[in-house]
Design a protein around this nucleic acid. Structure first.
Length: 488
RNA sequence: GGCGGCAUAGCCAAGUGGUAAGGCAACGGCCUGCAAAGCCGAUAUUCUCCGGUUCGAAUCCGGAUGCCGCCUCCA
């Protein structure tokens, strides 16, 4: 069994073989911390979170680095606007980022290095590039000379000549080639600055990733990830810098996730359709967002709409509804079995497990994997329908086995691992909070309806149910009593 | 101008040579006082269009049309 990964560099799926047998070194470009995270960040982070979890579950020892870019023009601009220091801006948004990640049930990377904590390493690499004549110095700035690096363009599939022909890039007279990019920038008086052989300055954007990845993962590592938009120029430049400086292959597998559109439009601040993670999580359950984000293949574009979130919510309700049903059906808590089975993080003994592995091994095909998950949900529901009254030993065993598969799959996708009542509770709180509904009022209505039903006054009972439904409250009359759920 | 991607039921979506997963919605049935939830059933003779290769193509090749992304900070 082998994993195949689509490599942006070769433009095809390749068999995954890490540099060092069962160890995986992975670097993912993290955010520039000058603003709140939006759903695009969420997709990227969820995708690599899933990849990280899956590789771990497949038995690899994964060293996962995700950086913070905490020195940058945009941060400086923000700091100047607000009249505070750059550190204050970046601190604020790093904290917010961590909060957002926690709300989305994201696993922490092994390390989260910051650019400003690696100035020495950055200066060192630039010094090597200058010494090897890949870079040149102009008035305290240092530029990388793209013409000196023959492979420039190999990741993005473009040749220097073509680009220059159709270029819209402003010509900077100090650059030898318009596509030369800055490694070190001379600082203006009130900007963050560090000493360097070329005078006081700060690092350019691309060099930090070359420096930090080399520091923690070595000069060659396995997976480098990020959004598709980073292919050019960011990742192209990283390759040029790192390979020019170290003379080694930089990265074996380049992995890039596709973009998110909102209502079929490109998300942008000027269009005003910029959705932050915090806004989304106010309305929708975080696991619905994860399910939505993983319901498409990670390289495809993905269109965010309310309907899509509604559907994802219905999907999560279905999964947790089943989990709750299983818990009620079983004589023993499911979690006990799961705990004892927890060692093997991956279901590979069952048919479900095998199908799941097959899907995920094929370039992390979560869309297919989710299909398998729903197949399993239906199958368990069917089994319980057939056996609810009898609760035979054999049937319980089978149901437990399948339910454990759901747990395990959920663990890799980062969903379906809450106790079901907690999930519905959270949804209820979100829903009632948004609509300013008092839960005790709902309970009171349910009591009134129960009374009416006992009196066989079904008209009155149905009136109450309709009243609640108008507020997106759905009632379910179960053997043990009536429960209520929020629609979204 | 250069580079790349996509087109599958009402909607979302998997499938990359062997006879169309899954989800949402809608419809019929079981269940229910009626619902909801759950289950069952029927829903694409067909995968944008036109050619070609093949015993066989949604899948490969050529062409057309349409949509989209990148080439500038961007997940």
């Amino acid at each position: 069994m082998t994993i195949r990964i689509y490599n942006s560099l070769s433009r095809q799926k390749e068999i995954f073989e890490p540099v060092e047998n069962n160890k995986v070194r992975m670097y993912v470009c993290g955010p520039t911390v000058y603003d709140s995270c939006h759903i695009g960040h969420a997709r990227s982070v969820v995708v690599f979170d899933m990849i990280y979890r899956y590789l771990n579950a497949r038995g690899y020892e994964v060293f996962y680095v995700r950086n913070f870019t905490d020195v940058d023009d945009k941060i400086i601009a923000r700091a100047n606007e607000a009249g505070v220091s750059c550190d204050e801006i970046s601190e604020k948004y790093i904290k917010e980022f961590h909060k957002d990640m926690a709300s989305l049930n994201m696993v922490s990377p092994t390390m989260e290095p910051r650019a400003t904590a690696h100035i020495d390493q950055i200066v060192n690499i630039i010094a090597i590039l200058v010494k090897k004549k890949y870079a040149y110095v102009v008035d305290g700035d240092v530029y990388f000379s793209v013409e000196k690096y023959p492979d420039y363009g190999k990741l993005s599939g473009r040749r220097l000549e073509d680009m220059v022909a159709g270029s819209r890039v402003e010509i900077d007279p100090r650059k030898q080639n318009p596509y030369d990019f800055v490694l070190w920038k001379a600082s203006k008086p009130h900007e963050p600055q560090w000493d360097s052989p070329w005078g006081k300055g700060r690092p350019g954007w691309h060099i930090e990733c070359s420096a930090m990845s080399a520091e923690y993962l070595g000069q060659t590592f396995d997976i480098h990830g990020g959004g598709k938009d980073l292919i050019f120029p960011h990742h192209e430049n990283e390759i040029a810098q790192s390979e020019a400086a170290f003379g080694e292959t930089f990265v074996k597998y380049w992995v890039h996730n596709g973009f998110i559109n909102i209502d079929q439009e490109k998300m942008s601040k000027s269009l005003g359709n910029f959705l932050t993670i915090q806004e989304i999580v106010k309305t929708w359950h975080p696991e619905a967002l994860r399910l939505f984000l993983l319901s498409n293949h990670y390289r495809s574009p993905l269109d965010y709409t309310d309907q899509a979130m509604q559907e994802a919510t219905a999907g999560m309700d279905r999964i947790y509804g089943l989990m709750g049903r299983v818990a009620q059906y079983l004589d023993q808590p499911l979690i006990r079995r799961y705990g004892s089975d927890g060692q093997s993080a991956l279901a590979d003994k069952t048919e479900t497990g095998r199908l799941f592995l097959e899907a995920m091994d094929d370039d992390f095909n979560t869309a297919r994997a989710i299909g398998i998950l729903f197949d399993t949900v239906r199958n368990i529901n069917r089994l319980i329908d057939a056996d609810e009254a009898a609760k035979t030993r054999a049937s319980q065993e089978q149901i437990v086995t399948e339910a454990v598969d759901i747990f395990k799959i959920g663990k890799i996708l980062g969903i379906a691992n809450l106790p079901p009542d907690v999930y519905f509770q959270q949804k209820q709180e979100k829903g009632t909070g948004l609509r300013k509904i008092d839960p005790s009022w709902v309970e009171e209505k349910i009591r009134m309806r129960k009374q009416a039903r006992q009196n066989k006054d079904f008209a009155a009972a149905d009136r109450i149910r309709d009243e609640l439904l108008a507020l997106d409250i759905i009632l379910e009359d179960r053997p043990g009593g009536t429960i209520w759920k929020m629609k979204q």
